[in-house]
């Protein structure tokens, strides 16, 4: 008898991806909202109207709380977060400013926009992917800063 093969990372990726898409589909079909992490957070920080806070705050609380609860119950997976505070601050600022300028990130443009064949979202995704590949190559293999 042969043992079942150990599930590979891509299987978890696919299952997790289906959960992410399911979450976005639920929000769209029930509430009529786009699941965009940067938009939901950014609008709260910018002072969104009170009636939308009643929908945004539970989303953010559960997005932060559910994984924290799962980690408390089942243990924390690796995050490999860099110990370089300067890199974290610079990267965080860039992600915050960039996603707000572009009106979306990996969830809003990448998942929700691309699946509706929005040209803006497809272009945004190609740009952050392309810049991501190039920047990682330069930062890791050429400059060696990360």
């Amino acid at each position: 008898m042969t043992l079942a093969p150990i599930p590979q990372d891509w299987i978890f990726g696919l299952i997790g991806g289906l959960m992410i898409g399911g979450a976005a589909a639920l929000l769209l079909l029930a509430n009529g909202r786009i699941l965009g992490a940067s938009g939901i957070l950014g609008d709260v920080l910018d002072g969104a109207p009170q009636r939308t806070l009643a929908e945004r705050l539970p989303f953010l609380a559960a997005l932060i709380g559910a994984p924290a609860l799962a980690v408390a119950l089942f243990g924390a997976p690796e995050t490999h977060i860099t110990g370089d505070t300067a890199v974290l601050i610079a990267a965080g600022l860039l992600v915050g400013v960039g996603t707000r300028l572009a009106n979306g990130c990996t969830s809003g443009h990448g998942v929700c926009g691309m699946s509706r064949f929005s040209l803006r979202s497809i272009v945004a995704t190609l740009v952050y992917l392309g810049v991501g590949f190039a920047a990682f190559f330069l930062a890791r293999h050429t400059l060696g800063v990360i």
């Binding site: 977060i81 965080g92 996603t99």
Partner: peptide, 27 residues
């Protein structure tokens, strides 16, 4: 759209976080 996405891609590459996962690890 294009400049913002480029800045986002740069930050994403430097730290390996986009907004969703950054919130999911916060706790």
């Amino acid at each position: 759209l294009i400049g913002g996405s480029a800045l986002f891609g740069l930050g994403w590459a430097l730290a390996g976080f986009c907004p969703g996962p950054a919130l999911a690890v916060l706790g």
